[in-house]
């Protein structure tokens, strides 16, 4: 069981959250017309073995989107911030 330190609700079980995937991908500007930029955004991932920035939605809590920093081997969570406070 992962336990995620929600900045609003405190330490909560993983089952209250919904996973939102890699938080390091950046959506291209809407004016971007290069298909490769959109392909990278939609499909391609760094998939690191180690430190990973990821979105979690506290769907059964404060309903805030969070950016969690977690190790994909040890599962240790070393950071958690509100997504809206993380500069894109």
């Amino acid at each position: 069981m992962l336990r995620i330190p929600c900045p609003i609700c405190g330490l909560r079980d993983e089952t209250e959250f919904s996973y939102g995937g890699d938080a390091s991908v950046k959506r291209p500007a809407m004016a971007e017309t290069d298909p490769k930029a959109w392909m990278d955004y939609v499909f391609y991932r760094g998939n690191p073995r180690g430190r990973h920035l990821e979105y979690w939605h506290h769907v059964q809590g404060c309903r805030q989107w969070l950016v969690v920093e977690r190790d994909t081997v040890s599962h240790v969570i070393s950071g958690c911030r509100l997504a809206r406070e993380v500069s894109p």
């Binding site: 069981m1 992962l2 079980d13 996973y19 995937g21 990821e54 977690r70 081997v73």
Partner: peptide, 11 residues
Amino acid sequence: YNSYAQRGGLP
């Protein structure tokens, strides 16, 4: 969620 850990969680 992304993981290389080869061990799972209780949920």
